[in-house]
Amino acid sequence: MRVVVVLKQVPDLVEEFEIDSDGTDIDREYLTFLLNEFDNHALEEALLIKDATGAAVEVVALDDPDVDQALYTAIAKGADRAVKLVGASGEGWLDTHTRAAAFAAWLGGEGYDLVLTGVQAADDLDGQLAPMLGALLGVPHVSVVVGVEAADGAARVRQEFAGGAVSELDVPLPAVIGVQAARAEPRYAAITKIRQAQQEGGLEQIDIDRPATSSGLTVRRMYPPERSDRAEMLTGTEAEVADKIIALIRDRGLMQG
């Protein structure tokens, strides 16, 4: 069984975001890019399937910022193959429609059984990859998934709903799954193993054409949310702020005693 995990780098959300001079995109220059956390869960789920069945796990990504680091980390965690598709990305944001077209074109020539990717990414302005990929490949897809057990050409997947309700579904393979959370917390790779993977350089680079696709959207403007009714910030030392918070909850009658 071949399990392909599609990875994407996104800006670290903890950093300060600024808008570029055109006012239609974020300024990427000083941002740090990390693996989309849901893709990390997708990778973990794939590795759990490998642990259980001996499936081969392959990771694939476009030429996103600092993507080599993510791909080598995946190898260090146990991925059997890492592929970087070069040629689809230009400067700046790449829409999900173009990403999906690039991955679908590549996957179409590969004999995959299961494709896993994160349920969403923070910059999915034009939609989520997993369902789009499923539709383009013409295979069943399930998203918001919290567990995949695959064997003998079929997978049982657990799809999560509001309030934590979970629906169990059976899908024949091949299929595309959007992972919300793996059955276990994503494993860590030892730094030494990541370095070793980097030194061995086992990253396959494949040139592709930029798909003739677009999102059909025109971003008129990007801006930080308007701060009109933003929180009143409490200032002072820890002790002073603590006094203020305690006073606020006491005034509302929320303190016992």
Binding site: I19, I26, A122, D124, L125, L217, R220, M222, Y223
Partner: peptide, 11 residues
């Protein structure tokens, strides 16, 4: 987008 840090106005 970006976890609610940025708004995008899109035609």
């Amino acid at each position: 987008i970006y976890g609610g840090k940025i708004m995008a106005e899109v035609a």
